[in-house]
C-alpha cells in the first residue's frame, strides 16, 4: 500500500458522510494527492478497495480533473496561473523568468527533482495577480523580487 494508515482512515472518515459510495471518489483522490503528490493507477486501485467503488470509475473521475498530477513530479509543484487577469499582470513574463531561473521549460522538472513548473488556469486570485500556487499554498501579488526570494526559500527549506 502506498496510502498510509492515516490517509486510509481519513478517506474512510470522509466516505461515511455521503449517502452514496461513489461520492467519496473526489475526497479520496484529494487525500491521496495530498499525501503522495500525484495520483495514478496504483492509487486508483487502492482507493477502489477502500471505498468499494470500481477502479474504472475512480480512474475516469481522476483523469477528468486537472488538479491532480498523474505522474510523480518535483518536490515543489509551481503552478503559475496564466489566465487573463494574471497575464495582464505579467504572468507570461513570470513564467519566462522562472524558466530561466530554474533552467527548465514549462511542464518540466528540475534535475534535482525539486521543482516542477506548470501553467494552470485561473486559480481565483485575480485581484492579487500574478500568483503561483506551490503545492497547496497560494503566493499572491508577486513581483520579481518576491518570486526570487520564494524560490530561494524553497530551495533552502529542509522539509
Amino acid at each position: 500500500m502506498i496510502l498510509t494508515e492515516k490517509s486510509i482512515a481519513e478517506i474512510k472518515e470522509k466516505a461515511v458522510h455521503y449517502p452514496v459510495k461513489k461520492s467519496a471518489i473526489l475526497p479520496a483522490l484529494t487525500v491521496a494527492y495530498r499525501q503522495v503528490g500525484h495520483v495514478d493507477e496504483v492509487i486508483y486501485k487502492e482507493i477502489s478497495k477502500i471505498i468499494d467503488v470500481p477502479t474504472l470509475e475512480i480512474a475516469e473521475a481522476a483523469t477528468f480533473y486537472t488538479m491532480f498530477p498523474k505522474k510523480p513530479r518535483g518536490k515543489y509543484l509551481l503552478q503559475v496561473c496564466n489566465n487573463i487577469s494574471c497575464a495582464l499582470r505579467g504572468s507570461d513574463s513570470m513564467i519566462a523568468h522562472l524558466e530561466n531561473k530554474l533552467d527548465i521549460k514549462l511542464g518540466e522538472t528540475t534535475e534535482d527533482n525539486m521543482f516542477t513548473l506548470i501553467g494552470v488556469e485561473c486559480l481565483g486570485s485575480c485581484s492579487t495577480a500574478p500568483m503561483i500556487q506551490v503545492n497547496l499554498d497560494y503566493h499572491e501579488n508577486l513581483d520579481k523580487k518576491k518570486v526570487d526570494s520564494l524560490i530561494d526559500e524553497l530551495k533552502a527549506k529542509k522539509d
Partner: peptide
C-alpha cells in the same frame, strides 16, 4: 441538519 464540505479537483 448535517453538512459536508466537498472539494473539487480542478474543473471550471
Amino acid at each position: 441538519l448535517e453538512m459536508i464540505v466537498h472539494t473539487g479537483g480542478g474543473a471550471y
